[in-house]
Design a protein around this nucleic acid. Structure first.
Lengths: 194, 194, 194, 194
DNA sequence: ATTTAAACGAGACGGTACGTCGCGTCTTTGT
DNA sequence: ACAAAGACGCGACGTACCGTCTCGTTTAAAT
């Protein structure tokens, strides 16, 4: 006999229109970029009043960071059997995140703003980056076990090199971010196919 | 008939107090960071009126970019005899630029602002980055000739990986930028000592 | 046949915690003054939800007016045998109301807010001022009968002068409101002792 | 021959459009009253940007106080030969200030706001009230010399009674402010014609 | 004992205006 | 030609509090 589950009361905590708002934020971000995105603009696009936004997010940067974290692909941890291919797959998601979404161009200003508020950057890392990196760490550790990567591989450093190269390319050096970039970076780091 | 050459180079072009201003800019940048640096603040520190600044630089980002370009070390092209050591030496200068000067923390916001004005980023690249990268390219090409690096080395990519890893570490992942970072990065890229 | 009288007066109508709320209102008023008193603050102090307040009072000004009306002394009609002393006694209560309670400083803002809502000021007059003035009118009429005051005394005007002088002193001119003020005002209006 | 006075350089210190702004402020005050007057509204009416207002006045209350001080009649010191008539004349100006200008209704809220900022009320007194009262004090002193008023007349108190009665009538008791009010008040204070 | 309705708790929201900040422009005046 | 001085336009930002609304939940009187 089926006991009545006492309705755990998933309270309506939090903004009612969170999804709408985050969606509008991404939209406005795509249209205007970070700097020219205005909180009022997001509010209008989300059919919500500005004060509602400030009730739930301390400032513009937090709002955008939240929206991005929710929008960017964390991606599944790839498992193709080949460490090299796993890394390439993972890196392609990163590239897509920087390229196919407003995240790339928005990043510098966002990071800068987040840094102003203590804990801002840390919060963003916690809500997105860490997950993403955890996935990559799994790949690398698997690669080490398999012998595809040296036993003394500095996991964090590898991840910084993977993402950092893409990041720098798009935002600083201005070099093109092409289709085969993921492969070329992985190759550069010495991860061969076999 | 021997025309008197009107010494065309004795330009009084440019602000009389350019050095003072650039110096004050760097100073303010160190104290406040890019965002909280104000043009009026720089003017005050340089004992100059705000309007003077706007006469010579189109906006805040240009001013800061100019000051940084003048302040950052372009550095001599190292020639230690060892490709690996050359790269490490070069990279250490980069790290110092990001670490020992206000450039590192200022970068995101600066880049973001520069990107807003068409040609802004390009100008900054031209005035600083290109020189720096040109030096590195020399190293790498020498390494290729020596056989220390593969013949098909993608020079631009290597440079992006070198600088990008540092950049990303400091600004995004938040991983520590330690003493031995240059060595570890160069090692990661497969450049061995012998 | 004895109809059971349905005791129509045992109303539970009205807020359960009216006294608590009014008390909290006065308290908050003393602490913060009218402007900086917030409805949420009163609610919190009264251990009650904001919505309860808005259920029973149309707005902040009405709440405060109600609390003040309940808190301020209407006072008994003094009867010392001397018209002059009666008036002084009465005026001292007024002074105490303005001085020993938050009413004085709160008045300007309260009046201003009450005036915004049609009938607001009138309601306040009805709930407090009128009673107070009625008491004073009795004194004055007694004084006229006794011959202590001229037969053609303009009662309303005298009351305005009595209270208005105190009011103006405290709020506008900033002159000190001293112990003997009541006497001096009554004297000024020509009411002698004998 | 008279030396050329070296043009004392009546610098353009201060807002260029001060008169326009003050005028617009009074206008808006008449239309909306103090509470519903908005700084942006004044700015718009004065064809000026909001920030210009905040550059020269710390807040709304200061702006309005300044505008009123400039707009209200300080009036000449009357000298009719009769102390009673002098006082009536003076009081009529006060009544007109409260009645024919937006000052009357604006007062409570204005005073309340001014009181919030330390020194706010004092500044208003200094810029308007004091001048006005100084004029009245002259009248009263003349009356004392003439013997029309008792030698021990408390000048400040008389002034508070004169203005306070009008003030209280209009704002608190709600009694009508009629034509003959000035006369009746002066009479009440015992100042006879002969 | 049960029904019913007044009163309350909780929490999100719309809305108005405030006051702030700093950028970049412009005009006037001097040197 | 350059620089000092200083007012201004302008566009956001983030804040504060007001008053409203929708649901559930308690409380207690009425049958």
């Amino acid at each position: 006999m089926t006991a009545t589950i006492p309705t755990p009361l998933a309270k309506t905590r939090g903004p009612r229109s969170r999804p709408t708002i985050l969606h509008a934020t991404i939209e406005q971000l795509s249209i205007h970029g970070y700097q020219r995105l205005t909180v009022e603009g997001v509010a209008a696009a989300a059919q919500v009043h500005k004060s509602t936004l400030y009730r739930w997010w301390p400032d513009k940067s937090a709002l955008v960071a939240d929206a991005l974290a929710a929008h960017l692909a964390t991606g599944p941890v790839p498992d193709t059997g080949s460490t090299r291919d796993d890394l390439i797959t993972w890196l392609r998601v990163t590239i897509a995140n920087y390229t196919a979404t407003p995240a790339g161009v928005a990043m510098p200003a966002l990071i800068s703003d987040l840094s102003a508020r203590p804990g801002g950057l840390a919060a963003f890392r916690g809500s997105f980056l860490d997950k993403r990196r955890a996935g990559c760490a799994v790949l690398i550790q698997r690669g080490i076990r398999r012998g595809d990567l040296p036993a003394d591989t500095d996991i964090e450093l590898v991840m910084d090199a993977l993402a950092g190269t893409v990041f720098y390319r798009q935002l600083v050096s201005g070099q093109p971010v092409t289709e085969d970039l993921a492969e070329r970076i992985v190759t550069l780091l010495g991860v061969q196919s076999a």
